[in-house]
Design a protein around this nucleic acid. Structure first.
Lengths: 213, 213
DNA sequence: CCTTCAATGTGCACAATTTCACAAACCGGC
DNA sequence: GCCGGTTTGTGAAATTGTGCACATTGAAGG
């Protein structure tokens, strides 16, 4: 497909979704997959799969399908998850701890290069091999020195904006925000909010509707 | 606005987003808010706020704005977060523990009535006052007896489908799935996936694009 | 080499959602 | 009770995203 087309955000999100089933297929030894089968695994339409992929090139073979390994490689290249991005995490309560240990980061090439908390009892303790919690007051200095690309915010919402501002100040351009607070950001930066309460409220809405209209 | 209009899912998600800033305004003692100000806090457009709300009724006063307390009450009623929904959580690793202790559930009227894990070391231990971990083998029986409305899945993705199936079997109609696996579900049930890796991949995509086209 | 079968890639029509823009409604002051 | 300044609620326009349907391409078999 022609370059220069603006790519819907929904497309990126779906493409990110295709990764997991493709990995599974690869593990199972499946070499080729059709848009129909992949769509089934991801609970979308097959035309959607084809259109999504067509924004970025022609990866399939007509009459056959997509080579699983190749497609996976292409998607990782498209998403940029084949590059090493340097991460810093701020806030190591339950959520922060769970995050740091989540294998999702290692599966991509992402690497934690810094961890921060403001609790004196936590400072100096080890989160992961080689990752020691530093005082939150040093966010700017350390993140700048380490060349952090992505900041993870796992602090209470009252502190989220302050932490975000310090990350931006340190030159961090992307933030994954786990606090339920919409942070302000400079135009050049990107913030993704991960707020499960929105999903939770959706479920409540669904349950409340059931049996009505 | 006319009844019977199908309401976009995006509208529900945004309405859920309006809650937090409104709560903050209420705490600050602000009594009235305009769509303009609320939009600013939520990083959306003011027309969007008005249209979203108009799907459900007329809650504002022209020339004035919205009464914060009333609007909050209306939104909670719309979302169904003013009712007590009964929750069960399956999987109490780091993520599950962090979830169970998250104040978001108590802020709504939601209540954990059961917790399950398959690790024998965990069974019998207490997650929250009155919430003791039970063997995963008893999901169907216990959830049915407790009348669970919403199931939270916080197990490895390889076990997600199995757990979901048992929850459905127990009559659970809504699932909040924290594993990165798209579960199949009966038509009458609703599954919301909370997968931060999708957001993470979005950030990587954004970073990869920067400096290109 | 020709035919048959399968599955991609995509133009186009339509469906859904967002944004605009303005009439209607309300407040407070005079 | 009217007027100026505000802000809502909402049709209609603009934009954005989705799904269909089919021409196109490749593989395999005779």
């Amino acid at each position: 497909m022609a370059r220069e087309t603006r790519i819907p955000n929904a497309t990126i999100e779906r493409i990110a979704l295709y990764v997991k089933p493709l990995e599974r297929l690869l593990e199972e030894g499946t070499e080729v997959v059709s848009s129909r089968k992949l769509a089934l695994l991801c609970r979308v339409r097959s035309a959607q799969v084809r259109k999504d992929l067509s924004y970025f090139g022609e990866f399939g073979v007509r009459g056959v399908g997509y080579d699983v390994r190749d497609l996976l490689r292409e998607i990782r290249r498209i998403l940029g998850t084949d590059q090493e991005w340097r991460l810093a995490i701020v806030g190591l309560g339950n959520m922060g701890q769970a995050l740091a240990q989540n294998p999702a980061f290692a599966k991509r090439c992402h690497r934690f290069v810094a961890a921060f908390d403001s609790d004196p009892d936590k400072i100096g303790t080890t989160v992961l091999p080689g990752l020691i919690i530093q005082p939150a007051s040093e966010i700017v200095q350390v993140c700048r020195a380490e060349g952090v690309h992505i900041g993870l915010i796992a602090v209470p919402s009252s502190q989220a904006q302050g932490v975000a501002d310090r990350l931006f100040e340190a030159g961090v351009k992307a933030i994954l925000n786990f606090s339920p607070f919409q942070v302000r950001r400079p135009d050049c930066c990107h913030v993704e909010n991960v707020d499960f309460t929105v999903s939770l409220d959706n479920l409540a809405y669904f349950l409340g509707r059931k049996g009505k209209g």
